[in-house]
Nucleic acid binder design. Structure first.
Length: 554
RNA sequence: GCCCGCGUAGCUCAGUGGAUAGAGCAAUGGGUUUCUAACCCAUGUGUCGAAGGUUCGAAUCCUUCCGCGGGUGCCA
């Protein structure tokens, strides 16, 4: 919470002394304050004087000296001391009483953490997972599922109005192939023209399971072959989606809406989009196909929307899907989380949306990189069609939702990761999540034990944090809003895993080094319990945001 | 070939202009008649893939190169 406050101080003194200097030109994101490294004897530092040397032809120490006078004159009470350090840093120490009083509020007013951020009055949709309903989710989908659900939760906490969506590709070739694959495993259904199952057909045990369970729901008589194929496919997709939903549920992932691609056909969104693009002279019929002229807009090549056989490409549906999000359902912002195999689609999708009048910055497409699977030293290939792959539910059952979520959440989505199944199974006791949960359980117990002292916390006027460890934990707790803010801005929730681990670590160390409940030292005990409560509330909030359970006993 | 991402400790990874580059795991040694030992304390390791450049300052930005993965379909 202090970073922003100090930032404001610096900005206002800059405006007074150097009114002509643009803050943005001093730092990319405009931020001029950062936490001091551990080795430095202060809490926050600013390199603003060093940065100013570009514009003010003076020694940075002299500039720091000038700014110091401005800052010191208006020094608010949360700052104890401002120091100038070589080669020109301005360093700030935070007042301990101010920290203590914040901790007290956090400990006693349970709503404090729930009301840290203002409502933003902005509707955001996050679309993630969106795997084709032609097979169960595999281990790679865990990443997108965890990333999307945690990000959604955090953005919502930050004050946005967020909706989660799963886009169901229930049209097109893959679905057709899926339906036929099921039909081919239904010996009771005899079709006049035997359908040739080709290399692209789906295999795997789940196909025959589906065939078996659908068999009874299909009547072979009275209806045409086309209808049989249609019905089997439809039921197959529905059953597959039920399985997918259940699997995601076990990972604590839920969606507000399941949007079906077929809706874009039935409500004529596709036609509408085609007309709009056509009006902009971005459509061309050539070689029997209908093209979107994306090259005109800066793409490497044009792209087909309607194929020679009159079927639609995925890209066409995708434009319509996004048109629906922005122009029909009126979301202010849409965040898509796509697998790395879709990164080639980003540019053309954005170009298409821009040509339909959507501002580029309102469509955020985040890529979650590949997960490669290892079983010990053996590499595992993922192939949905061959049916040879490790499923999401297999991993979640083996490793547990909590450990799974923490593991996948703790990496940035930008970098590929290797998931060793053997290691995940064997290592789950050393997964840092248990360390954090243990801190939560210890804290809960501690607070429970403290009730025996019958302290009336309403009568406490102020608390006194004394030891270095106490102050350090308190500062850590007060960093929480900044962590959330960073995640909301960068859309990268992995920062919370580290933060929470660090907080838990400081607590474990504190717990070991000092006795917290001491009946002979009630005054000190009160402060320590309040600090513990503040830690507990913060750890609990982190776990909730990660959608990981908070056990009271371990 | 071109486009996107990645390359940081033995392993898995944070850090993306700022101060002496950090965690977890693994390793070694110690710790509780005391609020939960799934804990704590101590000990080490780095050509930040390579080279050049920009800068007061580079793991971070730029250029080139090397390595790994993905994309480059009238597939999804």
């Amino acid at each position: 919470m202090y970073t922003q406050k100090i930032q404001n101080l610096i900005v206002s003194s800059l405006k007074k002394r150097y009114p002509n200097i643009n803050i943005q030109s001093l730092s990319k994101d405009g931020l001029l304050v950062q936490k001091s490294p551990d080795s430095i004897d202060s809490d926050y530092g600013s390199s603003v004087a060093l940065r100013l040397t570009k514009f003010v032809k003076k020694h940075p120490m002299d500039i720091a000296d000038i700014l110091y006078k401005y800052l010191n004159d208006t020094k608010p009470d949360f700052i104890d001391e401002i120091k100038i350090i070589n080669p020109g840093y301005l360093n700030f120490s935070i007042n301990k009483k101010h920290i203590s009083s914040n901790i007290k509020t956090l400990a006693l007013n349970s709503g404090t953490l729930d009301n840290l951020f203002n409502k933003k009055n902005r509707n955001i949709q996050i679309e993630f997972v969106s795997a084709n309903p032609t097979g169960p989710l595999h281990v790679g989908h865990i990443r997108g599922a965890v990333y999307g659900s945690a990000l959604s939760k955090i953005l919502n906490y930050y004050g946005f109005n967020v909706k989660n969506e799963y886009y169901v590709n229930d049209a097109g070739n893959q679905i057709k192939e899926f339906g036929i694959s099921i039909l081919n495993q239904m010996p009771n259904i005899k079709l006049k023209n035997k359908i040739n199952s080709n290399e692209d057909s789906y295999k795997g045990a789940y196909i025959s399971d589906l065939a078996h369970s659908i068999q009874n729901e299909i009547s072979n008589l009275e209806i045409s072959e086309q209808e049989i194929i249609g019905n089997v496919t439809k039921i197959g997709v529905q059953k597959m989606l039920d399985i997918i939903k259940k699997d995601l549920n076990n990972l604590n992932v839920n969606f507000d809406n399941w949007f079906h691609e077929t809706q874009l056909f039935s409500d004529k969104t596709l036609d509408q989009v085609l007309k709009l693009l056509s009006d902009k002279k971005l459509i061309l019929k050539q070689d029997g196909a209908t093209w979107f002229l994306s090259k005109k807009l800066g793409d490497e090549r044009d792209n087909v929307l309607i194929k020679k056989d009159l079927s639609h490409t995925y890209f066409f549906s995708d434009i319509a899907n996004h048109y629906n999000k922005f122009c029909i359902r009126k979301f202010d912002k849409v965040i898509n989380i796509w697998g790395a195999d879709h990164q080639g689609h980003i540019k053309r999708t954005k170009l298409a949306m821009e040509s339909l009048g959507v501002k580029s910055e309102n469509l955020e497409i985040k890529i979650s990189q590949m997960v490669t699977i290892k079983k010990g030293s053996e590499k595992v290939k993922i192939s949905k069609r061959s049916g040879e792959y490790v499923t999401l539910s297999e991993i979640v059952t083996e490793v547990g939702s909590d450990a799974c979520r923490y593991f996948f959440l703790s990496r940035t989505p930008d970098s590929q990761l290797t998931f060793d199944i053997e290691l995940a199974k064997s290592q789950n006791a050393s997964n840092p999540i248990y360390y954090i949960q243990y801190a939560h359980a210890r804290l809960t117990n501690l607070i429970e034990n403290a009730k025996k002292l019958n302290i009336d916390f309403n009568k406490i006027s102020e608390i006194h944090l004394e030891s270095d460890k106490e102050i350090s934990i308190a500062k850590k707790i007060l960093e929480f809003p900044e962590v959330i803010e960073q995640i909301a801005k960068e859309l990268e929730p992995h920062h919370i895993t580290r933060y929470c681990l660090e907080l838990a670590s400081e607590f474990h160390s504190y717990y070991q080094s000092e006795k917290i409940i001491d009946e002979k030292e009630i005054k000190k005990t009160v402060s320590k319990i309040l600090l513990s409560k503040a830690i507990l509330n913060t750890v609990k909030k982190c776990l909730d945001l990660m959608m990981i359970s908070s056990p009271k006993n371990m």
